[in-house]
Amino acid sequence: MARGEATRERVLDAAERCFASEGFEAVTIRQIARAAEVTLGVVSFHGGSKEDLFKTVLARRVTTLDNLRKAALAAVRARGDMTIRDVVDAYLTPYLDIASRGDPQWRAYAQLIARVASNDDYFPEVRELYDPTARIFIAELQRLRPGASAEELATVLTLTVASMLSIVASRARIAG
């Protein structure tokens, strides 16, 4: 059982890196199998179709992020006197904390999400995964700025997150 789970993680990690570097359309199951050092059948067994594998890769880190973000927001609420900056920090900081640990898979995830977030073709998958928690934060922002529409606040949050993902996913730009 543990060996099967380790193989599954290796397949998902390889798929995450491949999708992040090449994009969904350019990646083949054969490339993922080669990167994971498994057979094509093992990739299919653990991931299903390429589309299913892609959705699994996108979804597998969302729960971790959602839980950390909600906990950060709860901590801010408990402190009282919440500001817009507090709400935005509660949304961004959990990811930044994880990304700063140097885990190459979280960096690949950042690259993948940056790629996906900039392509409207993936909007349905992204919306399904991220909108439930984002709505909680947007509602909190709207409570702090009742004159702003939910759409305006969603735009601001989306642009802020896109900037963060771009920075985390492309350290080379900044280091250069």
Rank of each mutant, 00 (worst) to 15 (best):
A90M: 02
L96C: 10
V116D: 02
A117H: 01
R101I: 07
D97S: 12
D103E: 01
A90R: 02
R107G: 04
P104C: 03
D97Q: 11
R127G: 10
R101C: 09
I113H: 12
D103I: 00
Y109D: 08
I98N: 07
Y109E: 06
Y122G: 13
V116E: 05
L92I: 08
L96K: 13
L112N: 03
A90P: 03
Y95T: 15
A114S: 11
L92D: 08
D97M: 13
A114L: 03
I113A: 13
R115Q: 11
L92P: 00
A90L: 05
F123G: 10
D120F: 10
N119W: 05
R115K: 07
T93N: 08
Y109C: 00
Y109M: 01
A99D: 01
R127I: 07
L96R: 15
Q105N: 14
G102I: 13
D103P: 02
V126S: 05
P124L: 11
D89Q: 15
R127V: 14
A114P: 03
A99W: 01
L96Y: 12
E128N: 13
L92S: 01
D89I: 04
Y91P: 03
A90V: 08
D97G: 14
P104G: 03
A90C: 06
G102M: 12
L112T: 01
E128A: 15
E125S: 13
R101G: 15
I113K: 05
A110W: 09
G102Y: 07
W106D: 01
G102P: 03
P124K: 10
Q111W: 01
L112K: 04
A117P: 00
R115C: 06
Q111T: 09
P104F: 01
L112W: 00
P94L: 11
V126E: 07
P104R: 03
V126D: 06
Y95F: 14
V126W: 14
Y109Q: 05
P124I: 09
A117S: 04
R107H: 13
Y91M: 06
A117L: 02
D89A: 14
Y122S: 01
E125V: 11
Q111E: 05
D103A: 04
R127F: 10
D120H: 12
A114E: 10
A114T: 07
Y91S: 02
Q105P: 03
I98Q: 11
